[in-house]
Simulated scan of single mutants.
Amino acid sequence: MTPTYRLTCDHIERRPNVDYPTPFDAIGNTRTLCGSHDAQVKERASGRRMNDGALVERGVHVDGTPADPQHPWAR
């Protein structure tokens, strides 16, 4: 598998469950997440997100680059 396997487009602020576009569907309200981070913030059956939709960053610098110099994305 490559580091980009299973990327997901995620809404930062939850959009309403309607069948028509809303302001929450704007590109600026989306982010691309890997499978691991998507699972961190995915909505639960209750409709609430883990960590209120905030990502838990592990092993990265403030700018998002991997702290591990051996990580494929650090090259």
Rank of each mutant, 00 (worst) to 15 (best):
E43G: 03
A54S: 01
Q40K: 08
P23N: 07
R31T: 12
A26K: 10
L33W: 00
H37C: 15
R75M: 11
L7C: 07
H11W: 11
H61I: 05
L33P: 10
D38M: 02
H11M: 09
T22M: 12
P23M: 07
T4R: 13
R75F: 12
G53P: 00
G35T: 14
T32N: 05
G28S: 11
A67L: 14
D52E: 13
R75S: 09
R49S: 01
T32D: 07
A39Q: 07
L33G: 08
T30I: 06
R58G: 00
D63L: 09
H61R: 11
W73C: 06
D38P: 09
M1D: 15
P23L: 03
P21E: 07
K42C: 02
P16Q: 14
R31N: 07
P3A: 08
A67F: 13
R15I: 14
A39T: 07
G35E: 05
R58L: 02
R75T: 09
Q40V: 05
N51I: 00
M50S: 12
I27M: 04
E57P: 00
T30A: 01
I12F: 03
N29A: 05
T32Q: 04
R44L: 08
D63R: 01
G64Y: 00
R49M: 02
A39M: 01
H71V: 10
V18E: 14
F24E: 15
F24Q: 15
F24A: 15
G53Y: 07
T4E: 14
A39P: 09
R14I: 03
V62K: 06
V18M: 14
D38I: 09
T65Q: 04
